[in-house]
Simulated scan of single mutants.
Amino acid sequence: MSTSNIGVSASLHDHRLPMPVPVGEYERCPVTDVLRQVSDKWTLLLLTLLGRRPYRFNELHRAVEGISPRMLSRTLRTLESDGLVDREVFPTLPPSVEYRLTPLGVSLLEPLSALADWAVDHHAEIAAVRQRPS
């Protein structure tokens, strides 16, 4: 799973996994790391919004029902530390802050869109299977 393995392909179906899969290797896998980050409760939504345009903090807070200011701040800080979001402070009184996607963040939108398209296309099928008795 990690790029340290010889012959690792970027394609999931081409990659041979060792059996059993070593937990340490799974934990260090870049795919696991990124999917863990973008699959938290708020990250995907914030990336989607910021992919449309820059937002100020309070605009984002108003745009996402149910997110607390603390969680919004925490999620934005994580996205910033990952290099996906840029935070710009304007010298106003009081200071205003604007958030926007970095080029790296923008590059993530296409694969996330593909995953979103797949989910929409197959959601009814997955929901139907979930309804079947075990």
Rank of each mutant, 00 (worst) to 15 (best):
R100C: 02
S113E: 11
V23C: 00
L17V: 07
V38H: 02
S9P: 07
M71A: 15
P18E: 06
T75K: 05
G7I: 08
L115H: 09
G24C: 00
L50H: 05
V34Y: 12
G83P: 07
A124H: 12
R74W: 06
T92K: 05
E98L: 04
P133H: 13
Y26G: 02
L72Y: 03
C29W: 02
G66H: 01
L17F: 15
W42Q: 02
Q131N: 13
R53S: 05
A116D: 08
P95D: 09
T78E: 14
P103I: 01
R77A: 14
E98Q: 12
W118V: 02
S9A: 12
Q131C: 10
H15L: 15
P111C: 07
W118F: 14
L35K: 02
R87G: 03
R70C: 06
M1I: 11
S81T: 12
N5M: 13
P30I: 09
N5C: 08
V38Q: 04
I126K: 11
E88F: 09
R36V: 05
L46D: 00
S9D: 10
P94S: 05
L44W: 06
D117W: 11
S39D: 00
A124V: 08
P69E: 10
V97Y: 06
L44T: 08
H13E: 09
T3V: 08
S96A: 09
T43K: 01
V23D: 06
E125S: 15
I126A: 15
E25N: 03
A114M: 07
L79D: 01
P94Q: 06
D117I: 10
S73A: 14
A63G: 01
R87H: 13
G105D: 04
R52L: 14
L76A: 03
V129R: 15
V120Y: 09
P133F: 11
T48C: 10
Y26N: 00
Q131D: 15
F90S: 08
L45P: 04
S113M: 10
L45I: 12
A63R: 03
A127Q: 14
G83E: 12
